[in-house]
């Protein structure tokens, strides 16, 4: 059992960056370009690790926060992979929600520690968006636990595919898309607007860590939603984990396509639209729960 978890963890640590390479290839295809090789993002990250270690001026906490969010992100993936096949605590969902929030908070604090207006504007945009998005995440996980009474992966097979659960999981996918800061939600980076905002002062290994963390984050949130979704139909832990990883990969490609046919939103537009969407879905789902459809 634990071998499966081990393999999954290795896959989950390696494949996100590879998938980013695939995403670039897809983007190139949609742009009618040839594009870089699929391993390009790995080359990039490794190359960044080989550069001088440079800490931006007056950014003492940046490095700490960066490594903290990387560590939490790895922990999240490791924890989830193990918990699905071998029970750890009866409150897996709570642990994951808490860790996810901490990691997001650490992630978003990085640019705030750097005294660069672009960085700070990028961070403040991200915060506005996160307030909506993370809030929704907590609400959705809460709803899921409330509907199904499940808080641990070991009992996750007990959930049944009702419409209102499906709606919640669908909203979790929206959450995972927004949290992946892809277009139209890449407003915190917005290269032509605020010169890559929260990335502006990062370079070399720091940038490498940042990008790698971002890839892991993208992977994890998709994986999480996929686990909840597939658990409705697949009841064995190992199979569930494997199929969720496959679904995550497929979703990654779908997200890549979506990101390339849209334009960037604006912080005010994005947060309002998002809030409305979440409220509608949550309302529908709650309504569905009480009407028992």
């Amino acid at each position: 059992m634990i071998e499966i978890a081990g393999v999954s963890i290795l896959v989950a640590l390696f494949i996100p960056t590879l998938l980013d390479g695939v995403e670039r290839k897809i983007r190139a295809r949609i742009h009618s370009r040839i594009g870089p090789p699929i391993l390009q993002t790995w080359y990039d990250v490794l190359k960044l690790f080989g550069k001088d270690f440079f800490v931006p001026a007056n950014a003492v906490h940046t490095v700490m926060l960066l490594f903290m969010s990387l560590a939490i992100q790895i922990l999240l993936i490791g924890y989830t992979c193990i918990a699905v096949v071998a029970p750890i605590t009866p409150y897996d969902l709570v642990v994951i929600a808490v860790l996810a929030i901490i990691s997001q908070a650490a992630f978003i604090s990085i640019p705030l520690t750097i005294a660069n207006p672009f960085s700070i504007i990028g961070a403040s945009r991200e915060i506005v968006l996160m307030l909506v998005n993370e809030g929704a995440f907590l609400a959705l996980v809460g709803l899921y636990a409330y509907y199904t009474g499940i808080t641990a992966f070991s009992s996750i097979g007990g959930a049944s595919p009702t419409l209102y659960t499906l709606l919640t999981i669908f909203a979790l996918y929206i959450f995972s898309y927004v949290a992946s800061s892809r277009i139209p939600f890449d407003i915190a980076e917005a290269e032509p607007e605020i010169a890559s905002g929260l990335l502006i002062e990062l370079s070399g290994p720091l940038l490498g860590v940042f990008l790698y963390t971002l890839h892991l984050k993208r992977f994890f949130f998709k994986l999480f939603a996929s686990l909840l979704l597939l658990a409705l139909f697949i009841k064995t832990g190992a199979l569930l984990l494997a199929s969720s990883i496959v679904l995550t990969i497929v979703l990654w490609l779908v997200y890549a396509v979506i990101a390339n046919i849209l334009g960037r939103s604006r912080v005010d537009l994005a947060s309002i639209t998002l809030l409305k969407a979440y409220l509608v879905i949550i309302a529908l789902s709650v309504l569905g729960y009480f009407l028992e459809v």
Partner: peptide, 9 residues
């Protein structure tokens, strides 16, 4: 500038 690089390309 509007983040629609596909249109750009």
């Amino acid at each position: 500038l509007l983040g629609y690089d596909t249109g750009f390309m």
